[in-house]
Measured scan of single mutants.
Amino acid sequence: GLEHMADEEKLPPGWEKRMSRSSGRVYYFNHITNASQWERPSG
Rank of each mutant, 00 (worst) to 15 (best):
K10M: 12
Y27A: 01
R40E: 06
D7S: 09
R21W: 05
F29S: 02
M19Q: 10
P12I: 01
P12A: 03
T33M: 04
D7T: 10
L2A: 12
W38F: 09
R18I: 07
K17L: 08
A6M: 12
R40P: 09
W15T: 00
E8W: 01
T33K: 04
E8N: 10
E9T: 08
G1L: 13
R21K: 14
D7G: 10
R18Y: 05
D7W: 05
E3N: 10
I32Y: 09
Y27T: 01
E39G: 07
V26T: 09
A6P: 13
G14R: 01
P13V: 07
K17E: 07
P41V: 02
G24F: 03
S36E: 07
H4S: 11
K10N: 14
G14A: 03
G43M: 14
N30D: 03
E8R: 07
Y27V: 03
M19W: 14
E3R: 08
V26F: 11
T33A: 03
F29L: 02
P13F: 10
S42F: 10
G14Y: 06
I32W: 06
E3F: 01
K17I: 10
K17P: 04
P13E: 09
R40W: 09
P12W: 02
K10P: 15
Y27Q: 02
Y27K: 01
F29D: 02
N30L: 01
M5F: 10
G43W: 15
W15G: 00
P12E: 02
S42R: 09
Y27I: 05
I32T: 07
F29H: 07
Y28V: 00
P13R: 05
N30E: 01
A35N: 09
S22F: 09
D7Y: 05
S42M: 10
S23W: 04
P13K: 06
Y28P: 02
A35T: 14
R25N: 06
M19L: 14
S36A: 13
S42N: 11
R21E: 13
K17M: 11
G14F: 06
S36F: 15
K17G: 02
K10L: 14
S23D: 12
R25Y: 05
P13M: 07
G1P: 12
A6Y: 13
E39P: 04
V26D: 08
L2R: 12
I32A: 08
H31W: 14
A6I: 11
A6R: 11
K10F: 11
F29T: 03
K17W: 02
E16W: 02
P12S: 02
R21H: 12
S36L: 15
W15S: 00
E9P: 08
R25P: 03
F29I: 05
V26M: 07
V26E: 11
V26Q: 05
R40F: 12
N30W: 00
R25E: 10
H4D: 15
T33I: 04
S22W: 06
N34K: 15
G1F: 11
P13H: 09
R18G: 02
N30K: 00
Y27D: 03
Q37G: 01
G1M: 12
D7I: 11
S22N: 10
S42I: 11
S23E: 08
G24S: 05
G43Y: 11
G43K: 12
N34A: 06
M5V: 13
A6E: 14
T33Q: 04
E8I: 09
I32D: 07
S22L: 09
G1Y: 12
H31A: 12
M5H: 13
R18T: 03
E8M: 06
K17A: 11
R21V: 13
Y28R: 00
P41W: 02
N30V: 03
S36R: 15
E39T: 06
A35Y: 08
G24W: 01
M5P: 10
W15Q: 00
Q37V: 03
M5S: 11
K17Q: 09
W38Q: 05
Y27P: 01
G24R: 07
S22Q: 11
S22V: 14
A6W: 10
E3P: 13
G24Q: 07
P12K: 01
S36D: 03
Q37M: 06
I32L: 11
E3W: 01
F29A: 02
P13N: 07
S23T: 14
H4Q: 11
L2M: 14
E16A: 04
A6K: 10
E8V: 09
L2P: 13
E39A: 05
H31Q: 11
M5L: 10
E9F: 06
R40V: 08
G24D: 07
R21C: 15
E16Y: 03
E16T: 08
P41R: 01
W38G: 03
D7E: 13
R25Q: 08
A6N: 10
S22D: 11
S22K: 15
E8T: 09
R40G: 02
G14N: 06
R25F: 05
T33D: 04
T33L: 06
E16L: 06
R18F: 04
K10W: 15
M5A: 14
W38T: 06
A35F: 08
P12N: 01
G24C: 15
E16H: 08
A35E: 15
G14I: 01
I32Q: 08
M19H: 10
T33E: 05
A35W: 08
N34S: 07
Y28T: 00
G43Q: 10
F29M: 02
P41Q: 00
E9I: 07
K10I: 14
M19Y: 15
G43P: 10
S36W: 15
K10V: 12
G1E: 13
E3M: 05
L11M: 04
W38E: 06
L2N: 13
G14T: 01
R18P: 00
T33P: 00
E3D: 13
K10R: 12
E3S: 11
G43N: 11
Q37D: 02
S42E: 11
H31L: 14
S22G: 11
A35D: 09
D7L: 09
G43A: 13
Q37N: 02
